[in-house]
Design a protein around this nucleic acid. Structure first.
Length: 331
DNA sequence: CATGAGGAGATCG
DNA sequence: CGATCTCCTCATG
């Protein structure tokens, strides 16, 4: 109900990947009866697929929606557009993601069909989700939303992140020493050359980020500009003060996004601040990603949590249970 | 066998 | 310097 994944083939492999992995609903499939690609080599085959819940959370993070607005784009704006630099003459005329989601109210006449209308609603909703999810990723990785600004370290983080989320084979090395700018200048073909296995997927992901950044830029022109513009992205969250994030803050961030991380960490009793780490390895990986500690594991993460006992930040609940902790103070 | 408690030195921003 | 990170020992279910 919440998400209405939509797919398009505008991003080659992506649609198939997400289509199959995201557990698309039948109706959404009908909605835009797109070609249903053949199953990707790495999906549904492995154990994870059997437990969609596990990594689905991550998928939602960026993608239930991405495809969506590509759909919108390809359907709504027939004109070949700009921000997507060189587009390959692939099967789809790749367009620039457009911001029309905002002003959909202005063009009611255009989409006479109910389908179109509901589709628009879905799309704008979905665009919002993309924004939120990318924002979340940015916080977790401590990188900016705009790939153009990434240094080589940021790029590596992002790659790790995407690979981690989507269970892609490791391709980090293939993009070593590239900045975000370099990355953004690369065509899908170049991506594929560097990483035959997942270059196209990575490229598609990057496109989403680029598009989102571009859109965000467009939307925020005029306002927020004076202050530096971080307001838009850092509104509701606490963890933004430039200081290095603390583990307890990180955990709270995860807990704050049950939709994305509910399968690896969740509240048992939010009022009392009691939470449970459902997937210790997963949480540890996320933390390691965030802190640039590839060797992070639950052993070490839990040691850090235990340090909080003395500081009165986190404690073990009265009835001690495995992997269950409790924030001492109110959230 | 994964988790939990906590000591102690190393490391990083 | 503080907040982990890392490694380690020992205990527990």
């Amino acid at each position: 109900m919440r998400k209405v994944p939509v797919m398009s083939h505008s991003v080659g492999g992506l649609s198939e990947v997400y289509g199959t992995r995201l557990g698309m609903t039948e109706d959404s499939l009908e909605l835009l009866e797109r070609t249903r690609g053949s199953a990707e080599p790495w999906d549904l085959g492995d154990a994870k697929a059997g437990v969609p819940g596990l990594y689905l959370s991550c998928f939602d993070m960026l993608f239930t929606e991405d495809a969506t607005w590509l759909v919108k784009v390809s359907e709504a704006s027939p004109a070949p557009a700009a921000p997507m630099t060189h587009m390959e003459p692939k099967d789809e005329p790749e367009q620039c993601p457009v911001i029309d989601s905002q002003e959909q109210g202005l063009s009611p006449g255009l989409e006479g069909q109910e389908d179109e209308h509901s589709l628009e609603q879905v799309q704008s909703m979905v665009v919002g989700e993309v924004l939120k999810d990318i924002e979340t990723a940015c916080k977790l990785l401590n990188i900016t939303a705009d790939p153009i600004e990434w240094n080589t370290g940021n790029v590596q983080k992002w790659l790790l992140w995407i690979e981690h989320l989507y269970r892609l084979p490791n391709a980090g090395k293939a993009f070593q020493d590239l900045t975000g700018k370099d990355l953004c200048a690369m065509s899908e073909e170049e991506f594929r050359q560097r990483s035959p296995l997942c270059g196209d997927t990575l490229h598609a992901h990057l496109d989403i980020w680029k598009s989102t950044a571009w859109m965000k830029e467009r939307c925020s022109v005029g306002e927020t500009k004076t202050t530096g513009g971080e307001d838009l992205w850092s509104e509701a969250d606490s963890s933004c003060s430039g200081q290095p994030i603390h583990l307890w803050q990180f955990l709270r961030e995860l807990l704050r996004k049950p939709h994305n991380y509910g399968r690896c960490i969740r509240w048992l009793n939010k009022e009392k601040g009691i939470f449970k780490i459902e997937d210790s390895a997963h949480v540890a990986r996320l933390w390691g990603l965030r802190k640039n500690r590839p060797a992070m594991n639950y052993d070490k993460l839990s040691r850090s949590i235990r340090q909080y006992y003395k500081k009165n930040i986190i404690r073990k609940p009265d009835v001690s249970q495995r992997l269950v902790y409790q924030f001492v103070h109110k959230v």
